[in-house]
Design a protein around this nucleic acid. Structure first.
Lengths: 343, 343
DNA sequence: ATGAAAGCGCTAACAG
DNA sequence: CTGTTAGCGCTTTCAT
């Protein structure tokens, strides 16, 4: 690897002159600057950021710590961050935790060792104590999930309201046996979504046992399939289903379409998230659309600004983006037998 | 940030003793080691990789340079790499090029400045000369696309054979007006897939004008929609369609389902890739399944090994994974009017 | 307008 | 068993 010293020797000048020329210092003659730049380019010189960091320069790397990039939720976020950051000269490090706090900790150790400029994290349910300590030393931002011990900078969506609205939509259609299938309540998102579900039920004055819930520890496609199978068994199966996780939604859709369940005839369904394919599933999936793109952009811009301004303006910051119900064909009043001419 | 010097001062010993204790050097007494580790942990010491790199240590970062992480093709790859690399203590840098050679170049500059340990790249159609130079200085590996000037380490899928097989399937069903819709031929993948399409036609002895092709410069969902609209217009519209890009497939499926085109009645379709949702699209999408997971794992393992063994065993290496046709319901003999009792 | 030298944090060679 | 010293590549005083 070529260094400033190599260039200096080649031109018979000192390293400091080379350094100054490359940083376009005012007191270097134009001619020298030209010769230096020429040589640098010819020799394929690329400045060593490690060395610069030792002199106090900060890293240009921001890390994104998420459960799984295959979840399109997260890949959209990653893309949006990457795009916004590239424009500002930042690079994106990708760390997948698989929702395992130990993996999360290992990643944070590495990120800290690499002295990344900042971290955007979707924390696991209960981060390790050391993870919390490590994050204290790094400018960071929580995304979607919010853990109290990880500071008060947070970007997320209105989980409670999104599920309340989705459930209310089913209630308005006359459903009285509604099931909710979502992620674990250990996660702040899971808890909020479940709360939203219950809010809608109680607002409608429905009895507590109107709502049946299946809360997966694993928010996986496979679990979604199993859970919906379980839900549909038995005599008083629900007539409607609201979902609280993208992965679970994918599983449910696969299972329902495989079992040939009539939607919305036998069962009304409201999905979570709006993936490619949701629109062409069965009668079109009515689903909770999330403004992840906007959220991610906001998040990127906030962090960029935070990193560029020296002062520790680490005041609490919270951004809650609203979801929106995307109405398609997968919901209808219960007992499809009676096509019901109600509005 | 805590340094070894801080620890040394606190314990009244020298920095080298601290360094050795932390690296579990044999000549340090167990007691000192213990005290050092204790202090390090208490003080929240995290080694500075930048400093280590200046002493010759190599980075533990591998970069993945791809067009767009939202393409599930690439997010699957990213996940697989990440998983395999985390196990070996490597971190994954994510660089999106948006298929823009200038963005690609900027990323490679940064990666080089950061002295990343290695690069896995899906190159743009014609990488910039400087990009080529930069890559020469970095251990790297091409993925899927293969550009001759970027070295001879490559992992990919058998694009030619995959499309040949898919097309042959349609030919076998009796189609004689088959369209191919794929990415630009400037990309090696695009060219190979198109070649596969033509191979199948000529093997079947079909006239050249049997195949109609639409080659998108932009492999986007939107372009897929437009293109299929164009294809279906006019009197001698094709009776079958083979696709050569995931994004285009997504667009085509949306458009066909929106327009209510009967598949396979009016049109037989073979998709590219196997995304969630392809199985529940219409009659189930017959599609070209790709072993991306295996490919990515192979790729990760190869690079890890390459990075761990000092010697420049940069011998040419090529790995071609075969695709496989996933048969579902979207293809049938032409002229659906005659349900045709053939096997 | 340019050089010389110091030092960032760490490790390794060289003394004890 | 432990300390001293040098140097990785770069920027930044402090001297010319």
């Amino acid at each position: 690897m070529i260094t400033t010293k190599d260039i200096a020797e080649r031109l018979g000048i000192s390293v400091s002159t080379v350094g100054r020329a490359l940083s376009d210092d005012a007191r270097i003659s134009e001619e020298t600057k030209f010769r230096v730049r020429q040589a640098a380019s010819e020799m394929g010189y690329v400045g060593n950021r490690a060395a610069r960091m030792m002199r106090g320069a900060s890293s240009n790397v921001v890390a994104l710590v998420i459960p799984d990039i295959r979840n399109s939720f997260y890949s959209t976020i990653a893309h949006e961050l990457s795009k916004n950051m590239e424009a500002e000269g930042f690079q994106l490090m990708l760390s997948e935790t698989d929702d395992d706090r130990m993996v999360e900790l290992r990643h944070l150790r590495e990120l800290s060792a690499n002295r990344v400029a900042g971290v955007i994290i979707v924390p696991t349910a209960r981060p390790h104590g050391d993870s919390i300590k490590l994050l204290r030393g790094l400018p960071h931002l929580q995304l979607l999930r919010r853990h109290p011990s990880l500071g008060s900078q947070w970007f997320g969506v209105d989980d409670h309201e999104s599920l309340r609205e989705a459930t209310a939509h089913l209630v308005a259609q006359g459903h009285t046996r509604i099931a909710y299938l979502g992620g674990p309540t250990e996660l702040p998102t899971g808890a909020e979504r479940l709360r939203g579900f219950h809010s809608a039920l109680s607002e409608a004055g429905l009895p507590d046992d109107a709502g049946r819930t299946e809360l997966g520890p694993p928010s996986s496609v496979e679990y979604g399939r199993e859970a919906v199978r379980r839900l549909l068994e038995g005599p008083d199966a629900p007539t409607a289903l609201v979902l609280g996780s993208i992965q679970l939604t994918l599983g449910v859709l696969e299972e329902l379409s495989e079992q040939g369940v009539q939607v919305p005839g036998e069962l009304s369904v409201v999905g979570f998230g709006d993936e490619p394919g949701f629109s062409w599933w069965g009668p079109g999936l009515t689903t909770i659309g999330l403004p992840i793109q906007e959220m991610a952009t906001g998040c990127a811009l906030w962090l960029m600004r935070r990193l560029k301004t020296k002062p520790e303006n680490d005041g609490p910051y919270t951004s809650v983006s609203p979801g929106s119900l995307v109405l398609r064909g997968s919901t209808a009043p219960p007992d499809g037998k009676a096509p019901s001419s109600s509005a």
